[in-house]
Design a protein around this nucleic acid. Sequence first.
DNA 1: TTCGGCGATGTTATAAGATAACGCCATGAC
DNA 2: GTCATGGCGTTATCTTATAACATCGCCGAA
Lengths: 168, 168
Amino acid sequence: MTADSHPTTGPIPNHGHDHAHCIADALMRADALCAERGARLTALRRQVLELVWTSHKPRGAYAILEDLSQREGKATAPLTVYRALEFLVEQGLVHRLESLNAYIGCAAPGAVHSGQFLVCETCGNAAEIDDPRIRAAIGTIAAERGFQVSRPTVEVRGTCTDCQEKTP
Amino acid sequence: MTADSHPTTGPIPNHGHDHAHCIADALMRADALCAERGARLTALRRQVLELVWTSHKPRGAYAILEDLSQREGKATAPLTVYRALEFLVEQGLVHRLESLNAYIGCAAPGAVHSGQFLVCETCGNAAEIDDPRIRAAIGTIAAERGFQVSRPTVEVRGTCTDCQEKTP
DNA sequence: TTCGGCGATGTTATAAGATAACGCCATGAC
DNA sequence: GTCATGGCGTTATCTTATAACATCGCCGAA
Ligand SMILES: [Zn+2]
Ligand SMILES: [Zn+2]
Ligand SMILES: [Zn+2]
Ligand SMILES: [Zn+2]
């Protein structure tokens, strides 16, 4: 069993953590999941996934595009990145943050979860959470109103602990 | 209560309701609130608010822009609409739906609420809710993690009752 | 009343995010 | 090998949003 470097129950990762491990771990899990599902994690898609994992800040498609172009040494079209992102989102390896038009690596791919985020407006980091109380509350009110949920979006913007300490 | 009645208490207003009343009511409340606050609900801003209230479907800024241009009989710049929307959002008269890049009139301006929505992916209607359980759950987990909430976003996409009946 | 300040609006240009349409090519089944 | 599928490249275009700067008009102070 892999060490839980980034528990989904933890706070926003601090600057001191071993991020190379995050990346390696994410890629490894992606390989395993896609192999298991018969999904094709091509070199390009894997590359884009790695670039999404550049940090724990949500990244815009065009930021990823720039990095990709630089790595490849040639200009890449936006569509290339968008198609890769679409695949990664479908596979649950990446989430799209609606309120930021940006993408972030999933903290727990493969597991059932609904995609809830705490987004710090100061440092830009986003922590994925999967709070059963929020999930339950949404399920309850939806049921009460006869609303059939397909995709719940919870993006809580605010200030993380670190940034509160720095700017009191 | 008959099986095919259309309850006005449903999650999303049905097609038969008196929408002119919705609009008039929204404008009246906006007038009152802005007067109370000393905020300037100018003719332009009031016009944009009215256009946001065209229906209970979230509307894009450029759709509003088109309507506005048509009403004025002359082309209007996007910024004009965006500035009006910015004002209306600040005043809590309009909400922005992040997952749709669209705007919708607030159902309860003036009252404290966090902006939660049930969005039907079939008919496009959106119902504003303010479920205390969801609010509480978000508050709880934020407190547990030392995260200071400034703007919670909850947008639940799915299928409303009407659309479920039409397409079983 | 007139003046000055400030917020609202107009104008033009551009940034940022996303998709459409078409075709080539690699992969893998048969 | 042949063929079908799906991934990827290319070009163009669309939608959404903001920047920078000029002007207008309301309102209070002199
Ligand atoms: Zn990390
Ligand atoms: Zn932070
Ligand atoms: Zn109505
Ligand atoms: Zn519906």
